[in-house]
Computed example of a mutant assay.
Amino acid sequence: MNPIEQRLADLGITLPAPAAPIAAYVPAVEANGLLHISGQLPFRADGSLITGKLGIDHDVEQGRQAAERCGVMLIAQIRAALGGDLSRVARVVKLGAFVACSPEFTDQPKVANGASELMVAAFGDIGRHARSAVGVPALPLGAPVEVDAIVAVRPA
């Protein structure tokens, strides 16, 4: 087991099968040493989707947990795109977090921390990244959070 998979196991995280796209796109594209991962939704360990909005149906902590679940799916997509070899990850470059929320909700960065903190816990220092966190009125399938990523990768 490589160190990243061991860290995930130590955190009690089992990577799910990567989610299939719900529209006309691919889950990941590798170009010029960068792996671009499409936005991932917060699926629970049992495969069900978390739904609702921050500031209406969920508080900040529930949103943080949803963002962490997006992060778990991001890592599952990274592993699949890299042929199962997470050791090819050279750096998590950037995360983009989208938070479905009420107009008054302003804690998007705290929600996005769920995914950000997971990347550091899983990848160590190479998991530290740039990030955006924005509020939006709605997300696909009624999800409260969606997170995408750009990851620098080593050649196969």
Score class of each variant (00 low, 15 high):
G142R: 01
P3M: 06
G33F: 00
M119H: 01
V26K: 14
D46V: 00
G142S: 01
A19L: 13
V99M: 10
G12F: 09
R154I: 01
P137E: 07
R79F: 02
D57V: 11
C101V: 05
V26S: 13
P109F: 10
L34R: 08
R128E: 12
R44Q: 11
T14M: 05
L139Y: 02
A122Q: 09
G127A: 01
F123L: 04
I13Y: 06
R88N: 00
G124C: 02
V145K: 08
Q6F: 14
V153W: 00
D85I: 01
L74F: 06
L54K: 05
A121F: 08
L118R: 05
L8I: 12
T51R: 07
P109V: 15
Q77K: 15
Q77E: 10
I75C: 04
Q65I: 12
V136S: 08
L49K: 02
H36E: 15
S116I: 11
P137Q: 03
V60H: 09
T14V: 14
N32M: 08
D10V: 04
P3C: 03
L34E: 09
A45C: 04
A45D: 14
I78R: 02
D85T: 00
K110S: 11
E104Q: 14
A133H: 03
P137R: 04
C70L: 10
I22M: 08
L74A: 04
A122F: 06
Q40V: 02
M1Q: 09
L35I: 04
V147F: 02
A143F: 07
L49I: 01
L86P: 00
V153I: 10
H129L: 02
Q40N: 15
G142C: 01
Y25W: 15
A23H: 09
D57G: 11
D125C: 05
E146K: 08
V72N: 12
V99I: 10
A100L: 04
D46G: 03
A122H: 05
D10F: 11
G63E: 08
R69F: 07
L118H: 08
N113E: 15
V136Q: 13
C101Q: 15
I4Q: 15
M1N: 06
L54H: 05
S87A: 14
R79N: 07
P103K: 07
D107V: 09
A17E: 08
R64N: 11
V93G: 02
L34V: 14
F123G: 03
E146W: 12
I13C: 04
F98V: 09
D107I: 03
V153D: 00
P27L: 15
P18M: 15
P103M: 08
S48V: 03
G52Q: 07
K53C: 10
Q65V: 15
A90L: 02
L139V: 07
N32D: 14
I37T: 04
V26R: 13
G55D: 08
Q108N: 09
Q40T: 07
A81V: 05
G55L: 15
H36V: 15
V72R: 09
I126S: 06
E61Q: 14
A97M: 03
